[in-house]
Design a protein around this nucleic acid. Structure first.
Length: 861
DNA sequence: TCTCCAGTG
DNA sequence: CGTACACTGGAGA
């Protein structure tokens, strides 16, 4: 919230960095900087938290040291060359500088605290903070005089200011107020961008144009003399009125000439003579300039909510954001839309003020003698040699005062998560329970937005504040508590086992779901259904990897458009497209790489699917893979609905074991499980080590090798399948793996479809037995079963990978290239990149021995 | 893809 | 007694 944004006063900065930039004035009440630091240190020193902070600080220092070493090796010739390149880019940027937009950043002052004070007059003249004893969201300005800030734990705030009143947050209320504010903002830019409950960007360019012709009464507002909500307390109304006079009057009437602005005049910006608001008895007319518009917005916000806002006006978002901070609280500031004004504003601006430059970046740049934007610009050549391309491009944008000039509506969300902090939990059982609870909460949240995803990540923080995340991606989307927990549980189990016999001493656990299918995925998945169903009848082959026409067109179109976009947009779409470009090829190849087995059959089938689907119409004859009835002349949507209905019906569980993901490694795992049914913990270790050293390569079960015509039990089928894949032989559709990595229903459909065409007379009435771990699964839920198989498979894959690594280690180091049968390069060596900001100079961390444990799990289920 | 880091509010 | 939570994106392995 507010005080977090006032970075100079950030509590954590003071804690370790001792920036000495705290602008906190020692007033008659409140504390001075030294006193605040002393109290914070006393409360902090010796704690596990502090220990971790020190550790992190050391890592950052190490990174800085690495960076400085790198810097020392740079020759003046390199630097000159870099200078030329950077300046060429800077020139391009300069040429594309766009000053035609008027961007406004609105920021509510101490929002949560202000709402609480408004609704409870008892709090009015007291130091308050919103949050809890363990963490504060925001504090009012009174409390800030004592050093009480956002992101500070309440118990420390209490030591700084014993009178502090800590109010628990009422998010519903803040949301309601925020909605009121947004209603006003929409009048000026219907496409405004809300960043949070208390912050938003507006592009008022269009509004300004229209406004020029507005008659006066369209810009006239009446001053409310009472708040209808509080009519029961007339005494307050008087207060309110006086307050308005206090807060609004200086703002609206003490305009300062433009030249005073850049000299840090705290008064509210400039406006031309004719723009000066005229007051009648109880109404105000606002002018037509940007400043007047923003005053009007702030006036209306205050009238409507009795809360004040600060604002920044500038030709781009980056500057507008910095501006809104300049005259906070209850003030505004404008950077005029000409290059000189922008550069004057930027000149002495500390880089830390810029959104995106945080504590660590500040410290790293400071080590290079960079504090202000001017210095950032001066060192641009050096920075281009020390940081990644994205980083130095970002720096260059900042140092030229550039930023986005349009408000990109942020796309779909990328992940959803829950996490909780608690007092130490070390018992495994409690940890599993907690994990399940979190999964349940997450599942509920997901349901609200109708989301399903493929990657589950758990986050663990131990009592020493060390954070770990562990992720697992499955081939079909999941969303229910059970599905997510099935995956999260295994991740947690792996971590618990890894530290055995020591318990995990946790203080936080979190669960996240990501890899939501995008539109592309969904379309693709639909096509593959059609393609597959058709492929059963008219078998075609189309080798090689194809990029579909529609996609190509879109790609070209996007390139065409891209010159109109900002640098960041371009980069974004390049990334997006280069990703999508390879998606179809890699969707399958990934797996074959991971397992070192050829998936030719699969790919061929998939390509067939894509090819045939290109020619497919919207309405045709389908055979439902569940009920085996022909569905004539219906749309794909209708057909899908029909299949869904069938799937939801009762007749599924009997056939569901055919959805097993036959997989090369499954055979091996099966075998291991059979051969080594149980071990003690130490035996596990020994066996594991032995495994790794001797590179045992498991081969197929003898039955399948000896007797390929073996009865078509599911497990036997998957074994045979693996074998066939190894030999790259053409195979029956039934052998098709989950080629499209999409939703479980698709996968099921494909498998069922093949079944329906080839083996429909064959009854499959076995229980659900996982083909990987060989254990019967209690659930009759298809997706859940698939999840289980995926989890088992992932373990197998990890093992396979490790095997590969050992093999690689024996060879002279070489770019990892692999080609499919068509000779196409699937994966080339990652091209060397320029050092990144984040990890390039990372303090060498000891990477944990590695996943020895993953395999064990499979053995000892 | 996985893990960690940095940053935002 | 004691330091949150939810989200995005970069980077490197």
């Amino acid at each position: 919230m507010d005080s977090t944004k006032e970075k100079n006063g950030n509590y954590k900065d003071d804690l370790l960095l001792r920036m000495g930039l705290n602008d906190n004035k020692a007033g008659m009440e409140g504390l001075d900087k030294d006193k605040i630091n002393k109290i914070i240190m006393e409360a902090t020193k010796g704690s596990r938290f502090y220990g971790n902070e020190l550790k992190k600080e050391k890592q950052v220092n190490q990174r800085i040291e690495n960076m400085m070493q790198q810097k020392a090796q740079i020759t003046s010739q390199q630097l000159r060359k870099a200078q030329l390149q950077v300046d060429r880019y800077a020139m391009e940027l300069e040429q594309s500088r766009d000053l035609n937009n008027t961007i406004v950043h609105i920021d509510m002052d101490a929002f949560y605290a202000a709402v609480e004070m408004r609704d409870n007059p008892e709090l009015k003249d007291k130091p308050i903070a919103v949050g809890s004893m363990s963490m504060l969201s925001t504090s009012n300005y009174y409390a800030r005089r004592f050093g009480v800030r956002a992101a500070m734990p309440g118990f420390i705030a209490k030591r700084l200011c014993p009178q502090l009143i800590i109010v628990p947050p009422n998010f519903d209320k803040y949301r309601a107020v925020s909605t009121e504010v947004k209603e006003i903002l929409a009048d000026y830019d219907p496409n405004f961008l809300a960043m949070s409950l208390d912050e938003a960007y507006l592009n008022i360019t269009k509004h300004l144009q229209e406004r020029q012709n507005w008659p006066e009464d369209k810009r006239k507002y009446f001053i409310k003399t009472g708040n209808p909500l509080e009519n029961d307390k007339p005494r307050k109304e008087v207060n309110k009125l006086r307050e308005h006079e206090r807060s609004i009057s200086p703002l609206l009437f003490d305009d300062s000439p433009p030249d005073l602005q850049s000299q840090g005049n705290p008064l509210q910006g400039n406006s031309e003579e004719e723009d000066n608001p005229q007051t009648l008895q109880n109404s105000i007319v606002f002018g037509t300039s940007a400043e007047e518009v923003v005053k009007e917005i702030r006036f209306r916000i205050e009238q409507k909510t009795t809360l004040t806002a600060s604002a920044g006006i500038a030709p781009n978002t980056m500057l507008a954001k910095v501006c809104s901070d300049k005259n906070k609280p209850n003030g505004q500031y404008q950077v005029l839309p000409n290059r000189q004004a922008v550069m004057d504003f930027i000149k002495d601006l500390p880089i830390r003020k810029v959104s995106g430059i945080g504590k660590v970046t500040e410290k790293m740049l400071k080590a290079l003698g960079i504090i202000t934007c001017t210095e950032l610009y001066q060192q641009r050549a050096l920075l281009s040699l020390l940081f990644s391309e994205t980083s130095w491009h970002h720096f260059l944008h900042i140092s030229l005062g550039l930023g986005s000039t349009h408000l990109a509506r942020d796309g779909e969300r990328k992940s959803m998560s829950v996490e909780r902090t608690f007092s130490e939990i070390s018992k495994a059982e409690e940890q599993y329970n907690l994990c399940q609870e979190l999964c349940s909460e997450l599942a509920q949240d997901l349901q609200k937005e109708g989301l399903k995803g493929r990657t589950v990540t758990i986050k663990l923080k131990n009592v020493n504040f060390e954070v770990k995340t562990r992720a697992s991606t499955v081939s079909s989307v999941v969303s229910t508590t059970e599905e997510i927990f099935a995956i999260a549980k295994e991740l947690l189990r792996t971590e618990i086992d890894a530290d055995f016999p020591h318990p995990l001493r946790l203080r936080l656990m979190g669960v996240r779901l990501s890899s939501f299918p995008n539109e592309e995925d969904k379309r693709h998945q639909q096509r593959s259904i059609i393609g597959f169903l058709q492929a059963g009848n008219q078998s075609q082959s189309a080798p090689g990897c194809i990029l579909e026409k529609t996609d190509k067109d879109q790609f070209l179109k996007s390139l065409e458009m891209s010159h109109k976009k900002s640098f960041f947009d371009k980069k974004r779409s390049e990334r997006k497209w280069s990703h999508q470009d390879t998606f179809k090829c890699e969707a399958v190849d990934k797996q074959s790489l991971q397992t070192s087995h050829s998936f030719q059959v699969l790919k061929k089938k998939m390509n067939e699917n894509l090819e045939t689907s290109k020619n497919s119409n919207n309405s045709q004859i389908f055979t439902c893979p569940i009920c085996f009835r022909e569905q004539r002349s219906i749309s794909l949507e209708a057909f899908n609905k029909h299949v869904d209905a069938c799937l939801d019906g009762p007749s599924i569980s009997g056939t569901s074991n055919v959805f097993s993901h036959s997989h090369a490694s499954s055979t091996e795992v099966n075998k291991k499980e059979n051969v080594y049914p149980s071990f003690s913990q130490s035996e596990k270790q020994d066996y594991e080590t032995h495994q790794r050293n001797s590179e045992i390569n498991f081969i197929e079960l003898p039955e399948t090798e000896d007797n390929p015509a073996k009865a078509e039990s599911v497990d036997a089928l998957s074994d045979k399948h693996s074998k066939e894949e190894c030999a790259s032989l053409p195979s029956k559709p039934f052998n098709i793996e989950k080629c499209c990595e999409n939703s479980s229903s698709t996968v099921s459909l494909e498998d069922i479809a093949s079944l329906s065409q080839q083996e429909s007379s064959q009854p499959y009435l076995q229980a659900l037995v996982c083909p990987v771990c060989n254990l019967e699964q209690k659930t009759s839920d298809l997706t859940l079963f698939n999840v289980h198989v995926d989890v088992c498979l992932n373990k197998g894959i990890i093992q396979e990978l490790r095997k590969d690594k050992v093999n690689l280690a024996n060879q002279p180091r070489e770019n990892t290239k692999s080609t499919d049968n068509s000779g196409r390069v699937q994966k080339t060596a990652t091209k060397p990149k320029r050092p990144g900001l984040m990890t390039k100079y990372s303090a060498s961390k000891k990477t944990k021995p590695n996943n020895s444990r993953h395999t064990l799990d499979v053995f000892f289920k």
